[in-house]
Amino acid sequence: MTIQLKNISKRYGKDISLKNVSLTFETGKIYGLLGPNGSGKSTTLKMIAGLVYPDLGQVEVNGEEVTRRISKDVAYLTELDMFYPSFTVGNMIDFYASQFTDFDRNKAEQLMQDMKLDSAKKIKRLSKGNRGRLKLVLALARKAPVLLLDEPFSGLDPMVRDSIVKSLVSYINFDEQTVIIATHEIDEIEPLLDEAIIILNGKIIEQENVEDLREEAGLSVLEWFKSTMAEREGRDHE
């Protein structure tokens, strides 16, 4: 499923969140949307999920203009808390299973076992780490052609981060899913990425194939990111 952002601009008052952004995401690839806080990563993902609309330009998934109801094809993990506190883990799984036809209960149970989540536990009693794990269960248990992960490691300890990366490797369908991971913590996801995109102040400043980066430039994604940002800062100072 191809995702296209065509000349997208979005402002929040005086703040420019995205400025004339054009991007294409292809099926079977894992993209890293990298950039510092406030660079426009979350807005980009929300736009693909149909939760925010562009002021200018168009967002299309498989040639169809994105609306809120694109969520039938787009699994989205938000950095926000998306649960109802009175729910148990099991209630949340049941709710997702009732709303999303592609939700696979067996996969969800397997994921819950892997992540040691108790379905009877109230969500308000879960630690931040376990809430992060539950968000991942809900996103990965869907057989959606598009998977969007917004800061999946935000505020989580290294053990949880490690288990999340393992789950991503085990449960992503590498041939059929388009995966976009927005993060400013590059270390963890680096081994997963096919393409890396740097976004800064609402503009796409660089896009590279990760394999080319490693083989031709001899750089890791983190090194490339740091050097690009340093170069950009230097240019801004001049």
């Binding site: 999920a49 939760l51 809120r68 109801r69 969520s71 039938k72 989205y76 938000t78 926000l80 808390d81 998306m82 709303q99 999303f100």
Partner: peptide, 8 residues
Amino acid sequence: TQLWLYNP
């Protein structure tokens, strides 16, 4: 959060 709108 308005995340209830993330629903088909």
